[in-house]
């Protein structure tokens, strides 16, 4: 059984966009250990994306490759969650400038990590054997990613007044974007119907439990969710993805086929 290509691209785009975003900390981490940790987490994400793009390209045929999928698709073709493309800081007004806030980075990694351990775990039982093999590998890595992020959520939340305030602000800013997890896209619905994909709605209680437990330990509160549901996985993105892709794809597009 073959997964719908759009479903593979959703998983791959999530991984590559977060990998690219977190790699922005490389050389700028708040402490050396975290600089190295995030670079390693990014490498895992990019590795997962490569396996998924390779699989999608093989299924698509017609000269598609992991590079053509990562570097030569435009913004509206990307199927990642909006959460993952947001910059490392909260919303800004007008011409305001902001530094990266590590709390935003950590809370995002935590929300996504808590989802992906559940998704990869379920996908190890996918009817698509190739996808199940990628899921089995990715699960091993996602567990460490979540461990890392959850550790830091507690450290920041239950830390100083400053770190607590920034962690709470990050939770308040990002929580609404997790609503996108629970509204299945057509590709997800199709994949579930054929026994290939995971029914995300069925994971919600487990995700809530993981998140609530860690937030409680971190002395952080969970905000009430408003009605907004982002639609990044349908290709409708925030203004931030274009800039991220501009940086990620620029070299490949300026020098197509370049090797070194």
């Amino acid at each position: 059984m073959n997964a719908p290509v759009d479903y593979l691209l959703h998983l791959a785009d999530n991984a590559v966009v977060l990998g690219q975003r977190n790699a922005e900390w490389c050389g700028h981490g708040p402490i050396l250990e975290e600089d190295i940790a995030l670079a390693n987490v990014s490498l895992d994400h990019i590795g997962q994306a490569r396996l998924l793009y390779q699989l999608a390209a093989a299924r698509m045929g017609g000269g598609a490759s992991e590079d053509s999928l990562a570097y030569f698709r435009d913004e509206t073709a990307f199927r990642n969650y909006t959460l993952l493309e947001l910059p490392h800081h909260g919303p800004l007004v007008g011409y305001a400038a902001s530094d990266r806030d590590y709390a935003v980075t950590i809370v995002r990694n935590f929300f996504y990590g808590a989802l992906m351990v559940l998704v990869w775990d379920a996908l190890t039982r996918s009817a698509d054997a190739d996808l199940a093999a990628i899921a089995a590998k990715s699960l091993k890595e996602a567990r460490y990613h979540l461990h890392h992020a959850a550790d830091w959520v507690v450290r920041l939340g239950d830390g100083t007044d400053e770190s607590h305030a920034r962690a709470q602000a990050a939770v308040d800013h990002l929580f609404r974007y997790t609503e996108e997890f629970w509204l299945p896209s057509p590709a997800e619905t199709e994949a579930v119907a054929s026994g290939i994909g995971v029914d995300v709605v069925s994971l919600r209680a487990a995700w809530d439990a993981l998140v609530d437990e860690t937030l409680a330990e971190a002395t952080l509160s969970r905000p009430a969710v408003r009605g907004y549901v982002p639609e990044g996985k349908l290709g409708r993105h925030s203004e931030h993805l274009g800039y991220l892709l501009g940086e990620m794809q620029g070299l490949a597009r300026a020098h197509p086929g370049a090797t070194w």
């Binding site: 250990e33 190295i36 567990r143």
Partner: peptide, 28 residues
């Protein structure tokens, strides 16, 4: 796995063999 924090893996120091060790970072 996720709730097990800190990890209870008993890791012996490769230099002196002591199990009196602490994790500095999950990623080296």
């Amino acid at each position: 796995f996720v709730r097990r924090r800190p990890p209870p893996d008993e890791v012996a120091c490769p230099r002196c063999g002591s199990i009196h060790t602490v994790v500095s970072s999950q990623f080296g």
